[in-house]
Design a protein around this nucleic acid. Structure first.
Length: 416
RNA sequence: GGGUCGGUGUCCCGAGUGGCAAAGGGGGCUGACUGUAAAUCAGCUGCGUAACGCGCUUCGCAGGUUCGAGUCCUGCCCGGCCCA
């Protein structure tokens, strides 16, 4: 670790974005000061990033902040992976549907438990402290909260883009949403944080609420590292999020993960390399040049990306297997295009294909099955079945039922 | 509390004159094409059926008017805006 102070600052500030250059300069300067002081005092900085455990799984989009934490970790600082157990019990205010389904403490604990496991794909478990914010938030009483709230004006909160937009759009803003920011701000105070990492959606919570509250309570305001770019989802445009249905969970199975990565549009490949694989600019530029020169085929590039990502979250072996299966299923133009492994089900008596598909859960409804048959989306051993009344007889067994390109079931007469 | 505007196809956004299974997007699914599950083009996208016919269930909730209601009336619930 022979980086100079300025090199460290450059590294840690890379990817951070604040919407205006002045703020960036301030953060940069403060970070430099702190790093210098910490070094002189021989103590590491306290760095953290908070994650909301309401959703059962983290996805690739979350790894951007984790990689930033990792950088701090590698420079010897104390990293806390903070899990917002308390905040998530309240329910996300901006998401009205979800607000109704409040989680029990047990559910939150369960999610939280796997969260840390998932995070350790990026973070060093030895060097990471996992904490839960109910540790300090639960102890606050109403008087405490009023006192905390008195550090802010309503106008300060209304300036937040999120709220300002909703006022313009005539959408509701609930009072407790203000307290959400307040709670998150208190996280920083309780931990006496030196640095907090977050995404753009946390700009207000960290830069305004968190820093102001620390200052109001006599602490030195922390340095905010707000990651500028967010990862687009599988559609290639909209920020990855579970509610958009375009996310790639860290816990997804190798084959699923591989396929999801393959489904991103070509134009999203560079940002995936940058944000998910964490490629430095030089390497990224070289890769892009190769691509543009035609030396690297886009399909090969994407296969490489999918392989690399599955390798990180599973293993090289799993990535290799997924890739092979991909070739089997999609690359063989005239082959049968079937994966080597697929679920097996028993057919004990002749059954109408429509009923069969529904029974196996390969379609949602009989209507859908009928539609798929009409459109030529259903195959038996690779042959399109068009008659909607087709009956699968026992003499055909074993037979592979295929719906669309990716749903396969092998039908057999009976188990063993 | 008063006035006013609004809540639409259980993914989202959004048209809708009393005849509507309800326009149009997005998303999703299927097919063609290809370099992939990309792009492009086409079709489909409430459920059940002995099924191109019949039935059932949908427009915040509950009633009512009507041969017939998303559309009209009444009450309630939930939101925006203005006033207090």
């Amino acid at each position: 670790m022979t980086m100079t102070l300025d090199e460290q600052v450059d590294l840690l500030m890379s990817g951070a974005e604040y919407g205006d250059p002045d703020t960036r300069e301030v953060m940069r300067r403060e970070l430099r000061e702190r790093l210098g002081e910490a070094h002189a005092a021989g103590r590491p900085l306290r760095v953290y990033c908070g994650y909301d455990p309401r959703k059962p799984d983290l996805h690739l989009g979350h790894t951007i902040t984790m990689r930033k934490l990792r950088q701090f970790q590698e420079l010897g600082h104390d990293v806390t992976f903070l899990i917002g157990t308390f905040t998530s019990l309240i329910g996300d205010p901006s998401d009205i549907d979800k607000a109704r389904s409040q989680l029990t403490p047990e559910e939150v604990r369960e999610n939280a438990r796997t969260y840390a496991q998932q995070a350790f794909k990026i973070l060093d478990p030895e060097l990471t402290t996992v904490r839960y914010n109910d540790e300090w938030l639960e102890t606050l009483d109403f008087a405490d909260i009023i006192r905390l709230a008195s550090n802010f004006t309503v106008q300060q909160f209304l300036q937040r883009e999120n709220f300002a937009n909703r006022i313009d759009a005539h959408q509701p803003i609930y009072l407790h949403e203000f307290f959400y920011a307040l709670m998150q701000a208190y996280d920083a105070v309780a931990q006496e944080a030196d640095v907090q990492v977050g995404g753009q959606d946390q700009l207000f919570n960290i830069l305004v609420a968190g820093r102001k509250l620390q200052q109001g309570l006599g602490q030195r305001p922390m340095v905010a590292i707000i990651m500028g770019e967010s990862l687009p989802g599988t559609d290639g445009v909209i920020k990855m999020s579970k509610s958009q249905g375009n996310h790639i969970p860290l816990l997804s199975e190798p084959w699923d993960m591989f396929g999801k990565v393959m489904s991103i549009p070509d134009h999203a490949m560079p940002i995936y390399h940058k944000l998910v694989l964490g490629w430095p600019p030089a390497r990224l530029a070289a890769w892009q040049a190769e691509l543009e020169a035609g030396a690297l085929h886009p399909n090969a590039a994407k296969l490489g990306l999918a392989h690399a990502i599955v390798t990180i979250y599973h293993s090289p072996e799993a990535a290799e297997a997924a890739r092979q299966r991909w070739d089997e299923v999609f690359r063989s133009r005239d082959g049968d295009g079937m994966p080597s492994d697929m679920p097996t089900e028993v057919l004990a008596a002749p059954e109408r294909l429509i009923d069969l598909l529904r029974r196996l859960g390969m379609v949602e409804s009989g209507k859908e099955a009928a539609r798929l048959l009409e459109q030529g989306g259903v195959r038996l051993d690779g042959e399109v079945v068009a008659e909607r009344d087709h009956v699968v007889v026992l003499a055909r067994l074993p037979v592979v039922v295929q719906v669309g390109k990716r749903r396969f079931v092998r039908l057999i007469a009976d188990k063993r």
